[in-house]
Simulated assay, not measured.
Amino acid sequence: MISRRHFLKQTTVAGSGAILVPNLSFNLYKKPEYGVQLYTFRDELAKDAKQTLKTIADLGIKKIESARSTKGLYYGLSPEGMKKECEALGMKLVSGHVALDDDFESTMEQAVRSGQEYVICSSLPSKGQTVDNYKSVADAFNKAGESCKKLGLKFGYHNHEYEFESHDGQILYDVLMDNTDPELVYMELDLGWVVVSGFDPMDYFKKYPGRFPLWHLKDMDFKEKESTEFGNGDLNIKKIMESQKASGVKHIFIEQEEYTSTPVESMRHNMKFLKKLS
């Protein structure tokens, strides 16, 4: 008998059906230059940001995406300091997770000083799992996108699981997609949460081609709804990687919130896993 995990590994089945991928080899695509979402190293960064950045660089990471912390957007470093540290280590600060709140003007100003390209809203700025709320959020996103564009930045949104709930017969994430301007709002698709929610990323790549320039790549334990090391969860990472062209992805950030050992050991495992795919 085929186990549930083995079956998911082979087909990456979600509630709506199997994930569809092109009949193309992973090797036909340009090898990605993987990045990491720094929330993966949140505790280490809080203790010693500079040393942690060096540790990340030593793992072969070339791109990073920051996340808000108790020490600010850059873990106690100034925007210029963060840029300087990354450049010295051969890394690029591409993106940052932020809040769309009353301090957003300061957030944008700091992002410009850091040299990053994307400013990504990390969670829904207002509560309410209704179509009307998501339309209101979409309006706020379009305005934020306009503000960012004027400063040479790109505004985006990172999903979780709840955006794929439905209200009045509509998938709320689709409401967000349909009411945001593709020229102003760029989507960072968290692949793990999409599939855990019972949906197929390829369906979104087909419906909204080129709308997902950023990914969060994470393996997930479907039962526990927790992230885990690549190959230890229920995602077929190889097949997902084959859908790069369809999604229009430019930056792939590895993210892992839970670990069997330490963040460093988990990331070392993940990098080795990805290397074997190429």
Rank of each mutant, 00 (worst) to 15 (best):
V195E: 07
E229G: 05
K238V: 13
M202V: 01
V196E: 09
L191N: 10
E188C: 14
K207M: 12
E229L: 07
K239I: 08
V175L: 10
M202I: 01
Y204H: 04
V185D: 08
Y208T: 10
M220E: 01
G210L: 12
E229Y: 02
W215M: 03
F205L: 09
E229K: 08
E229R: 04
E188Y: 14
S227Y: 04
E224Y: 12
G198D: 12
P213F: 03
L172P: 00
H216E: 01
G198V: 13
Q170H: 00
F205Y: 14
S227H: 03
E226P: 08
G210Q: 09
M220F: 05
K238L: 15
V185W: 09
V195H: 04
D234M: 10
G231R: 03
L176H: 07
S227I: 08
N232H: 15
D200I: 06
Y204D: 02
D190Q: 12
W215I: 04
T180W: 06
M202H: 09
P209F: 10
G192W: 03
L217K: 01
P182W: 13
E229T: 10
D203C: 01
M177Q: 13
H167G: 00
L235G: 01
M177A: 11
F212C: 08
D200G: 04
F164W: 01
Y208L: 09
D221V: 10
L176S: 05
